[in-house]
């Protein structure tokens, strides 16, 4: 088998896996399974990125998502009052509208992808993609990189502030409302 045929085969398998597992995220009854189907989707997309010779991005995607999906699974189990996460659950609203919106989004974007005339300039296959990315991040686009870093730092601080139990006006689970923000008492009709 030639190399391009193998790449094509891998692409079809991986992309089918990505889309099918993405669909299964919302079809499964088990929360942990839902989180890990999403991880499968991410790993498949990471594989496609590796096929596109963006190895670094593909691997980093897997690296990030492995941790995040496990945290998602733990959160689901913690908040859903369903200790092992094995009971059935189907919790959807506005189902028909959501299916419609999803289909419209897919049709619109796929239409753009199929109809639009993108320039046909393939990346040179022997280019050191990772090294180029690194030079770009610490060279021309350093401002973008630094902004991303500062944004992440601000996110960390903000997330801790939001999630912290201790608030300015007492513990969060005891209300933590400033005095003037209390829900106004219903006024008697004149």
């Amino acid at each position: 088998m030639s190399r391009s045929l193998l790449v094509d085969l891998a692409f079809y398998i991986l992309s089918a896996g990505a889309v099918v597992s993405a669909w299964l995220v919302f079809r499964t009854d088990s929360m942990v399974r839902a989180a890990y189907w999403l991880l499968v989707s991410f790993v498949a997309v990471g594989g496609v990125l590796v096929l596109l010779s963006a190895e670094f991005l593909g691997l980093v995607l897997v690296l990030m998502m492995a941790g995040e999906m496990t945290i998602m699974a733990v959160f689901m189990v913690m908040f859903m009052m369903n200790p092992a996460g094995l009971n059935p659950m189907t919790m959807v609203h506005q189902h028909r509208a959501a299916v419609g919106a999803g289909l419209v989004a897919f049709a619109g974007l796929a239409g753009v992808g199929l109809v639009a005339d993108f320039p046909d300039r393939a990346a040179p296959s022997d280019a050191p993609a990772t090294a180029e990315l690194g030079t770009e991040l610490l060279g021309d686009s350093m401002l973008v990189f630094e902004t991303a870093g500062v944004t992440l730092l601000a996110t960390m601080i903000g997330a801790i502030a939001i999630a912290s139990r201790r608030g300015r006006y007492g513990d969060a689970d005891a209300g933590s409302l400033p005095p003037e923000l209390e829900a106004p008492a219903p006024k008697a009709r004149a």
Partner: peptide
């Protein structure tokens, strides 16, 4: 012998967490 070997190792080791949590959770 990939140019991003360290990242491959890191990504693989990040998935260890998935396997262990799955093993613990799936036994019900």
């Amino acid at each position: 012998d990939v140019p991003d070997g360290i990242v491959l190792f890191g990504a693989a080791m990040a998935l260890v967490m998935v396997a262990v949590f799955l093993h613990g959770w799936s036994a019900n």
